[in-house]
Simulated scan of single mutants.
Amino acid sequence: MPVPINTFKKSLSAGDTVFGCWVGLASPFSAELMGTAGFDWLVIDGEHGPNDLRSILAQLQVLEASDSHPVVRVPVGETYLIKQMLDAGAQTLLVPMVESAAQARQLVRDVTYPPHGDRGVGYALSRSARFSQISDYGTTADAQICLLVQVENLKGLAALDEILEIDGIDGVFIGPADLAADMGHMGNAQHPDVQAAIMDALRRIKAAGKAPGILSTNDPMTLDALDAGAQFVAVGADVLLLSHSAQALAKKWQSTK
């Protein structure tokens, strides 16, 4: 029996546009709630959310009943972390701060079984293989793993064309906040220079046959990114949705005092 089809990867390969949302509250309950909202995909954030292996595992478990595909963002592109997330059942990984072709090549090896990669072969014990029930896991898993890398600073942008030449990279996500900071515009991803760099990168990614990705909570920027070819587009974050709604509600009624 082969592994389940990665529907997110299939959509990107078909050139489809999919809309997602960040999940950073590090709670299975809130992740389950977000899974009912109707997004195509959700990012379980292990970089800036207070997550660890066990909390990410729990969120993968509750999202299994959802139509929203879970994307796990690891805190850093370390081989051992990637191995753990894949064995926990993640089929799609988002890796931050990729700055070179050499780093990207190693990430491809990290998500690939030998003889072409370095992923440890322990799937008989793993949730990813349904605890040895998926008998063909070892021979079919590689084709269903989706690797997304984040290019989010000037060093990464300088290496973008080389990164795009690497087989095994399914998509490249441009990180607006870090890129803005590295360009000297901390907190201002809307600066014209930052926007020009973002849109140029998205067009280059699309032209290279990879899927471009972005996070944007600014509708004009989101539309510009879509025009530039963005395919996997995050349009919000659970933390911001809760925080902004709570603040607005409190302000509404505090103003009546």
Rank of each mutant, 00 (worst) to 15 (best):
residue 51 N to G: 02
residue 59 Q to L: 06
residue 239 V to N: 01
residue 49 G to D: 04
residue 245 S to E: 05
residue 223 L to C: 02
residue 238 D to F: 09
residue 239 V to H: 01
residue 53 L to N: 04
residue 139 T to E: 15
residue 192 P to F: 13
residue 11 S to C: 10
residue 87 D to V: 09
residue 21 C to E: 02
residue 100 S to G: 10
residue 238 D to S: 12
residue 23 V to R: 01
residue 161 D to Q: 11
residue 232 F to R: 00
residue 64 E to H: 15
residue 240 L to K: 11
residue 123 Y to Q: 09
residue 245 S to P: 00
residue 2 P to D: 06
residue 23 V to N: 11
residue 55 S to D: 03
residue 54 R to H: 06
residue 33 L to Q: 15
residue 85 M to D: 00
residue 17 T to Y: 05
residue 242 L to T: 00
residue 205 I to S: 03
residue 225 A to S: 03
residue 189 A to G: 12
residue 19 F to S: 03
residue 246 A to Y: 02
residue 138 G to D: 12
residue 173 F to L: 15
residue 43 V to W: 02
residue 180 A to E: 11
residue 107 L to D: 06
residue 228 A to T: 02
residue 116 H to Y: 07
residue 144 Q to C: 08
residue 197 A to N: 05
residue 14 A to G: 11
residue 206 K to G: 02
residue 6 N to Q: 08
residue 212 P to D: 05
residue 19 F to H: 04
residue 20 G to R: 07
residue 233 V to D: 01
residue 12 L to N: 08
residue 97 M to F: 08
residue 146 C to T: 08
residue 221 M to Q: 14
residue 84 Q to P: 01
residue 129 A to T: 12
residue 14 A to N: 14
residue 17 T to W: 02
residue 33 L to W: 09
residue 188 N to V: 14
residue 194 V to T: 11
residue 141 A to G: 02
residue 186 M to W: 07
residue 136 D to F: 06
residue 171 G to V: 11
residue 51 N to H: 12
residue 51 N to Q: 12
residue 224 D to T: 06
residue 39 F to Q: 01
residue 20 G to N: 03
residue 190 Q to D: 11
residue 159 A to E: 13
residue 106 Q to E: 13
residue 75 P to S: 04
residue 29 F to E: 07
residue 209 G to V: 10
residue 104 A to C: 11
residue 155 K to Y: 10
residue 53 L to I: 04
residue 67 D to P: 00
residue 97 M to Q: 10
residue 115 P to A: 11
residue 152 E to C: 15
residue 154 L to A: 13
residue 85 M to R: 06
residue 225 A to P: 03
residue 35 G to C: 03
residue 234 A to Q: 12
residue 103 Q to H: 08
residue 51 N to F: 07
residue 120 G to V: 05
residue 88 A to S: 11
residue 98 V to M: 14
residue 126 S to H: 04
residue 118 D to V: 09
residue 36 T to G: 00
residue 86 L to T: 03
residue 34 M to S: 08
residue 183 M to R: 13
residue 177 A to V: 15
residue 189 A to S: 14
residue 46 G to E: 09
residue 180 A to H: 07
residue 152 E to G: 15
residue 246 A to L: 07
residue 124 A to T: 09
residue 33 L to E: 14
residue 147 L to W: 07
residue 225 A to K: 02
residue 83 K to W: 01
residue 196 A to T: 06
residue 250 A to V: 09
residue 93 L to I: 13
residue 227 D to Y: 00
residue 240 L to D: 09
residue 155 K to H: 13
residue 110 D to N: 15
residue 199 M to A: 03
residue 67 D to T: 11
residue 50 P to R: 04
residue 224 D to I: 00
residue 132 S to R: 12
residue 116 H to K: 13
